[in-house]
Design a protein around this nucleic acid. Structure first.
Lengths: 236, 236
DNA sequence: TGTGTAAAAAATGTATACATATAAAATACA
DNA sequence: TGTATTTTATATGTATACATTTTTTACACA
């Protein structure tokens, strides 16, 4: 918990992604300003920035709270996530810069270390950062806002993925790590189709896990084929 | 130009969409606060909100400016706009509420009146609002941020569409008005495929116009078929 | 008890003074 | 002149006091 403005900003993002702050939880500007050695003005400004990025919800005269996650939003999440991920993946291959690919590799190494050490929080954050970087690689300022919001809830819904409890879940985590390696090499090789294939494989892996943990009522998510139908002129 | 906080907020959005404020134009918080009878604090807060919605760009210690539009962002715009519009259209059919459909009809009537009166500014704004409402109908909080950013630049790139200067451009504007009527009836009839067809027709009409006016170098945009390839696992 | 209202407390919103950083102008020097 | 450096002006960033709104508590009354 480093103090100062960027400290508060980073901490809030981290705490929201890792569910250290629960959805709907109120954020108190006075106590936060004291804790981080700031006045209320910059704290409120940070709230507004986080609102713009989808981390926080601000209601007039009622302050800020962690952005909620209800059943309805989850349905929408499962519907559009694979579409956006696939589009971002394809564009990333077309537009990435060398610097970004090396950032991606560094992030993957930190992710791998966290996975071997069983450091759940680090896994959540490095995995999130990994997919953020792919978003940046796409260079597409129109798609990135949606990707950002999806990644917030993906981290929150899927956090159990990084807390394996038996051989099956451990294997699934290992597969995810391998997928990331696959992304790195497919992007480096400018192989769009492989990246998109991997996107759907990676999505399926994550989706199955998320479905397992979403109680009480089972969430029927869309297969990649169904997702395509969102975009095709004629639905089958 | 109504004063107060919401007045400034609405005016800035309007002026940015209609290009009354040019891309890259600096926004001065002191003069705006004086003009609208506010102190700097709420003006700065509005800047942050507009930044979150993609209207404005804030650089540390350098204030706010209207979000730029460069050649690179335009390429990305043409690539993803039809995909997002189509997805939003399909979801709108699935999720719209009666109130939203009647709002859409009201907006369309104002749009029609503006088009017969040749009121360019009103056309830009009502057209923008029309498509915003379709975004709201989708109910998808993950897709809406991207739609919002696309609509900002669609309004800015396409504003000449609403300033017809010969029989051809007048006919094209008429066609756009008819497309809107088509959206309303297709949505009302829960006819997803018709809506998506209309999305692509409407997009083609607008795209052709935008290409005509984007100087100096011709912008090759993607056909709906190309757009689909962004999402398919195997590109053709 | 339960409900409605009034008072008090707490939180958010705004104005303003001051601090700091950036941009512009003026000056010095080659 | 042209360029570097200092000074000045301007703009942004932060702290704090005050205003307004919301929430909580206390109290009256049925």
């Amino acid at each position: 918990m480093k103090s100062g403005k960027s400290g508060l900003y980073d901490d809030l993002k981290r705490q929201i992604l890792t569910m250290e702050l629960d959805p709907d939880e109120d954020l108190d500007e006075v106590s936060l300003s004291e804790k981080y050695g700031l006045s209320r003005t910059p704290v409120r400004e940070i709230f507004r920035r986080l609102e713009g990025e989808g981390y926080v919800d601000i209601r007039a005269n009622r302050g800020a709270r962690v952005v909620p996650m209800n059943h309805s939003t989850l349905r929408h999440f499962f519907l559009v996530a694979p579409m956006i991920y696939a589009a971002i993946g394809r564009l990333a291959v077309q537009n990435f810069k060398a610097k970004q690919l090396s950032d991606l590799k560094d992030t993957q190494e930190r992710f791998r270390i966290a996975s071997t050490e069983g450091d759940t929080l680090a896994m959540v954050l490095e995995n999130n950062r990994f997919h953020e970087i792919i978003g940046e690689m796409s260079g597409n300022v129109y798609l990135q806002p949606s990707l950002g919001r999806l990644l917030i809830d993906h981290a929150r819904i899927g956090h159990t993925f990084f807390r394996p409890h038996n051989d099956d879940t451990r294997n699934r985590l290992q597969t995810a790590v391998q997928h990331h390696d696959g992304f790195i090499s497919a992007i480096g090789a400018h192989d769009e189709d492989s990246v998109v294939d991997l996107v759907f494989e990676h999505w399926e892996l994550s989706r199955e896990n998320m479905e397992m943990f979403i109680a009480p009522q089972r969430m029927k998510a869309d297969s990649p084929a169904d997702v395509s139908s969102l975009l095709m002129e004629k639905s089958s």
